[in-house]
Design a protein around this nucleic acid. Sequence first.
DNA 1: GTCGTTGCAAAGATTTTGCATTACC
DNA 2: GGTAATGCAAAATCTTTGCAACGAC
Lengths: 123, 123
Amino acid sequence: MTRNTSQREAIQQSLETAVRPLSPEEILEAAREQVPGLGIATVYRNIRRMVEEGQLHPVQLPDEPARYEPAGKGHHHHFRCRKCERVFDVEGCPGSLKEMLPEGFQLESHEITLFGLCKHCHP
Amino acid sequence: MTRNTSQREAIQQSLETAVRPLSPEEILEAAREQVPGLGIATVYRNIRRMVEEGQLHPVQLPDEPARYEPAGKGHHHHFRCRKCERVFDVEGCPGSLKEMLPEGFQLESHEITLFGLCKHCHP
DNA sequence: GTCGTTGCAAAGATTTTGCATTACC
DNA sequence: GGTAATGCAAAATCTTTGCAACGAC
C-alpha cells in the first residue's frame, strides 16, 4: 500500500510543471523548492516506482543521463539541439515504421530522436 | 599523431566482427582474446577517440549501457525484442521526418528505435 | 501503532584520470 | 629516443541499498 508523501508530491509536480524531460538531478533541484530536505535517493526511488507504474516515461539520449517526463503527454518525440543541448518535444510521427521491419517481427512501440539546431541557435 | 597498437587493433576487430552493437564490457571481453592484458581504461579511451573520429557510432537504448558499432554499416536503425532483449539492425527509414519539426529548426540526423517481439519470440 | 517512506551515509556500478612504464614510429 | 598509448589504481560520477528515524493512515 502506497502513501502520499510531500516528497513524492513535489517530485510529481516538478515533472508535470516542466516543459521538457528532466534528469534526476534536475528533479531534485526543482522538488527541493517545495521540500528543502529532499534527498537524491528518494528521487531515484520515486522515479523507479513511477516508471514501473507507468506514470513516467524515460527519455534516453546518447551520452546523456536519463531524463523523465510524465506519461500523460500523448505520443510525441524529441529534438536535441547540438548547440544549446536543450531537448524539445516534437509533435507528429511518420506512419510507415511497420514497413521497416523484417518478416515476422511485431512492432509494439518506437522512439525517434531528432538532432540538429533549434530555432534559437540556427543562424 | 596516432599509433597503431595491438590493443586498438583488437578493439576495432572485435567491433567489426560482432553482428550487433557491443557494450564496453563486451568489447573488453572480446578484445582480451587477442590481447589478454588489456585494461578497461584502454577500451574506454579508444571508444571515446573512435567516436570522436567518427569511426564508431554509439547506440543508446533506454535503461541500458551504451553500445557501439562500426560507422561503416550504412544508415540503419535498431529493433529491440522485449522478450529475448537482443538488438537487431533494421534497414529502411521513413522519409518524412523533416515535417515533424517546428518552424526554424534544422534537422541534421536522427535515430529510431523500434520495440516489440522478434520473429523468434513471436508466437 | 504499524509499516511504508525518508535521509543519510556507505556500497556498487560505471567511466575518467594521474602517473610511471611500455612500445610504436 | 621521443612520445603516444597502456595498465594499474585512485578518483569522479551516477545509482542503489542498509538502517535508524519519521510520518501517513
